[in-house]
Amino acid sequence: MAAALLLVSAWSARADPIGDAAAIAMTRPGEQIVAGDIKPRQLGALLRPVDAFYGFWANGSLRLLSRAIAADFKDHTLPPGRPQGPQGPAAASRTFLKAIPDLRVTVVQRLVVGDRVVSHLRFTGHFTGTFLGKAGTGQRVDFIATDIVRVRGGRITDNWHLEDNLTFLQQIGMIHK
């Protein structure tokens, strides 16, 4: 994991205007449903890396990312061109924060079952940066995503995700309705 993070450690150009604790607090779920067989201690262990993961999406902190995902993290729905492993979320975050510097992540709801955490997410902000060579003009961005993550040994080991990329690309003017 440390070697993977070194590859992206040069990126810390974003001055982390949102601290790690604040990023985690901002991404607490609006609603959480937990299977009845999960004990409070087990729930805490499952959610620590998940909370760090969504805090990472809010501020791009590599410290939070390293607390969240395992060295052998696998993205089961890896988009073309994104690296597998810890480098993948780091690259995606870097791209999104470059395009949408005021990106906000809201965990609308969360389901906790077994070793899985399902989160319904909402991403908002303004396209004032660049994305795939296109410069933003302040367009409002508001799209959803869903993650299913597996937590083992205190880290997220697997992620299956689906983002509403069509809405995002329409909002920034890359695809016309």
Rank of each mutant, 00 (worst) to 15 (best):
M1I: 09
A2N: 10
A3T: 10
A3M: 10
A3Y: 12
L5P: 02
L5C: 15
L7A: 15
L7G: 14
A10V: 11
A10G: 15
S12M: 13
S12I: 15
S12H: 14
I18Q: 06
G19Q: 10
A23F: 04
A25P: 04
A25F: 03
A25Y: 01
A25W: 02
M26F: 09
T27K: 01
P29S: 01
P29H: 01
G30N: 06
V34T: 07
K39Q: 13
R41A: 12
Q42F: 08
L43K: 03
G44L: 12
A45K: 12
L46H: 01
P49C: 10
D51V: 04
D51N: 12
D51R: 06
A52G: 10
F56I: 05
A58S: 12
N59P: 05
L62Y: 07
R63L: 10
R67Q: 15
R67A: 11
R67E: 13
K74D: 14
T77R: 11
L78E: 01
L78M: 06
P79K: 13
P80S: 14
G81L: 10
G81R: 12
G81I: 05
R82A: 08
P83A: 09
P83Q: 07
Q84T: 04
P86C: 10
Q87V: 14
Q87S: 14
G88P: 03
R94W: 14
T95K: 12
A99G: 05
L103Q: 03
T106D: 07
V108I: 14
R110A: 00
D115E: 08
V117Q: 01
V118K: 00
T124W: 02
G125C: 03
G125Q: 01
T128L: 01
T128Q: 06
T130H: 08
F131Y: 09
L132H: 12
L132V: 11
G136M: 03
T137K: 12
G138L: 08
Q139V: 04
R140Q: 08
V141T: 03
V141I: 11
D142G: 08
I148A: 05
V149A: 03
R150V: 13
R150A: 09
V151E: 01
G153I: 11
G154C: 05
D158T: 00
E163H: 13
D164E: 13
N165L: 11
N165C: 15
T167D: 06
Q170G: 07
Q171N: 12
M174V: 05
M174E: 09
